[in-house]
Design a protein around this nucleic acid. Structure first.
Length: 413
DNA sequence: CGAGATTCATGTGAAGTATACCTTTAGGCTTAA
DNA sequence: AAGCCTAAAGGTATACTTCACATGAATCTCGTA
């Protein structure tokens, strides 16, 4: 046993593939950010007045995921902070908050609490009136003369959960502050986000706007090449590996994060396989793995009733496929609402869970369609009634795994 | 034979209900004067 | 007495149910050729 373990550890220790994997991790902050020079310059020139201790315009960044928004703003703020520390005339703080994090995003209270914590204060987790937390926030900010840049990432999430009012209050903060000046940098991957905003908020929040376009395949390749240099040992990458990663990611609206993940996972797969090179096939595998993990994560996080409905769908369509092969040979793998609901009812009884109404299950099915796990179409069979035709949209090789996940979560519940 | 009515099985919308989670508030406990 | 905390009271969003009506093509009905 020990020897086997030793072997595993040793082969892992040899580390044939990677030199420094951390460079591919999402947290990693590279020295250079290719193809974002324009944007970085713009951010720089907009935020530059903070160096003289002046308030800047509020700034708004948009672009899809993985287009370097967060990276760029962090890059600029690092540089700014370094410069400012040299001349001690005033104080500059740049706080970054990701509004999408679960513990933060729910309520106004929590966001404020989180901000206060970042600024060095503390509030009880509950019990205080929101207004009190709000004034505490102002008090902390205003306690000394300073300049605050507030970076709110994924700001669109807050508006969905809370309301326009919160942002409105934020934009008006300056009028309530005497010593401190504050400016807000909003980041959103939803391009239409601004349109949904209250016009008052909109005009003050987006005094300046910068758009981050998606990377194309060539640019992705360059990014990958730059990073890959430090990550992998010499010559472990098969020709075309980088190009393929870039091509895959370019298909997904030019998501650089996706490209980096692909490369990293492909490397990990090669390593686990004991291969000396990262071959092209590992990229396909990595792509599958990412896709699979994404879907399985979704399934995992779904509530129990949703899982039961999905389980019914998977079970029925598997059975359907088998039957149709035996009889006719044609692939008629679609199933209908009624079948699903009946099977689902039995499933609930077996597991001693309450049975939801058909109305609700209908909505649940629709939601799975929106998640892209199934495809749904309303058809009419004439006198046979009207119903949804349901088809699974996930590849067959993860069905088994999906079922296992659901079974697991059922037996624990 | 064909136009229009009927029908089936469920889609879909509105409105109501239960539940969980939040905020607010009142009352009790602690602390400082 | 003032301030702080907590438990209960009051609000609100969410998940679901109930009720009611909408759908759309196969099928039926019945008048007509």
């Amino acid at each position: 046993m020990t020897t086997e373990l030793d072997e595993i550890f040793e082969s892992f220790d040899k580390n044939i593939i990677f030199k420094d994997k951390s460079i591919l991790q999402t947290r990693y902050q590279p020295e250079e950010i290719p193809h974002r020079i324009e944007q970085i310059k713009q951010i720089g020139s907009i935020l530059a007045p903070v160096l003289r201790g002046e308030r800047t315009s509020n700034l708004f960044l948009y672009g899809k995921t993985g287009t370097g928004k967060t990276l760029s703003i962090q890059h600029v703020s690092d540089k700014l902070l370094k410069r400012v520390s040299k001349n001690e005339g005033f104080k500059l703080r740049i706080e970054y908050l990701n509004c999408k994090l679960k513990k933060v995003s729910d309520t106004e209270y929590r966001i404020l609490a989180e901000l206060i914590k970042k600024l060095g204060g503390s509030v009880p987790a509950t019990g205080l009136p929101t207004q009190a937390v709000y004034s505490k926030f102002i008090e902390i900010i205003d306690s000394e003369k300073q300049l605050i840049v507030l970076i709110l990432d994924e700001i669109d999430q807050t508006v969905k959960k809370i309301s326009n009012d919160f942002l409105y209050n934020l934009t008006r903060l300056n009028s309530e502050l005497s010593k401190t000046q504050i400016c807000i940098v909003g980041i959103s991957n939803n391009l239409t986000f601004l349109d949904e905003l209250d016009p008052r908020v909109r005009s003050s929040l987006s005094e300046e706007e910068i758009v981050f376009p998606p990377y194309n395949a060539l640019q992705l390749q360059e990014i990958l090449n730059k990073r890959a240099k430090g990550v992998f040992k010499e010559g472990v990458l098969q020709d075309g590996v980088v190009a393929k990663c870039a091509a895959f990611a370019a298909r997904e609206h030019g998501d650089a994060r996706r490209a980096l993940d692909l490369l990293r996972i492909a490397g990990e797969l090669a390593e686990r396989d004991g291969s000396k090179k990262v071959l092209l096939k590992y990229i396909d595998e990595a792509n599958n793995k990412i896709e699979r993990d994404k879907i399985l994560d979704v399934i995992k996080s779904e509530p129990r009733q949703f899982q039961l409905v999905l389980y019914s769908i998977i079970h029925l369509s598997e059975r359907k496929i088998k039957n149709s092969k035996n009889k006719t040979g044609q692939t008629n793998d679609s199933i209908f609402t009624g079948d699903v609901y009946n099977f689902y009812q039995d499933l609930c009884v077996q597991n001693k869970l309450e049975v939801l109404t058909q109305r609700r299950v209908s909505d649940i099915i629709q939601e799975f369609d929106m998640l892209g796990i199934i495809n749904v179409r309303v058809i009419s069979k004439g006198r046979g009634g009207r119903m949804r035709e349901i088809k699974l949209a996930i590849s067959k090789n993860i069905l088994q795994k999906a079922k296992e996940i659901i079974e697991d979560s059922l037996s624990y519940g």
